[in-house]
Amino acid sequence: MKREMRRYFKALRDRISEYERETWNEEIRKKLFNLDKFRNASEIFTYLSKNDEVDTRKIIEKSWKMGKKVYIPKITEDRKMIPVLLESFNDLTYGLYDIETSKNRKTSNKIEISLVPGLSFDKNRHRIGYGGGFYDKFIKDNESFYIGLFYDISESFNLNLDPLDEKLDMIISDKKII
């Protein structure tokens, strides 16, 4: 069931026009930047967006301007995801599974805000990710405030499908905050 849902929501996201994508990304950024929790955080962890995902590069740039330390995922040989410091987009390199990560080895266990990607969400703050389980394991093992970034068209009715799926603290879409 999850495989079909992933395919459906990926195809749906692929059909978003560039204009819609940028408009919706801007709405999501505004909501995020207006959160006291985000403004007051000194360290954030975020995915590095690709193609059709909610854009995080402008979030990263604004975070640097705000004086925040920004961490991005690195997948280790033992299939764990760890946060590594990103001080510049020039620090990017390709890691395992051809995922862009930072050359930097500095990590942190004081990350206050973590931005999480996914393909779909529901009103109960469940999400469907890409199927690797990296974020669910990370959420289970690390304290932070977890915010999922989604386009509103990705909302599902009920995604509480698997006991290993971790619930997020907040969802931000272009239309609402849950």
Rank of each mutant, 00 (worst) to 15 (best):
K140Y: 08
L85H: 10
E20G: 04
A41R: 09
R127A: 13
S108Q: 10
R57P: 00
R3P: 00
G132T: 02
E26S: 12
E26G: 05
G129K: 05
A41H: 04
T56K: 02
K176H: 11
G148M: 14
V116E: 08
S108P: 12
N109P: 00
N90D: 15
L149K: 01
F38K: 06
L96P: 02
S63L: 03
L119K: 09
Y8I: 13
F89T: 05
W64E: 01
I82V: 15
Y97N: 13
R3S: 13
S156Q: 11
D141Y: 07
E43W: 10
Y151H: 12
F134S: 03
F38G: 13
K123I: 11
R127M: 06
S102V: 07
D14K: 15
F145Y: 15
F134T: 01
K37Q: 11
N142L: 07
Y97I: 14
S102T: 04
R6E: 04
R6L: 04
S17V: 06
S42T: 12
I82E: 10
V54M: 05
F121K: 06
D169K: 10
N25V: 01
I72G: 10
L119S: 08
K175F: 01
V84R: 01
T76C: 04
F89R: 10
M5K: 14
I172L: 06
N34E: 15
L86P: 08
F38Q: 08
I147W: 12
K68D: 12
K62M: 10
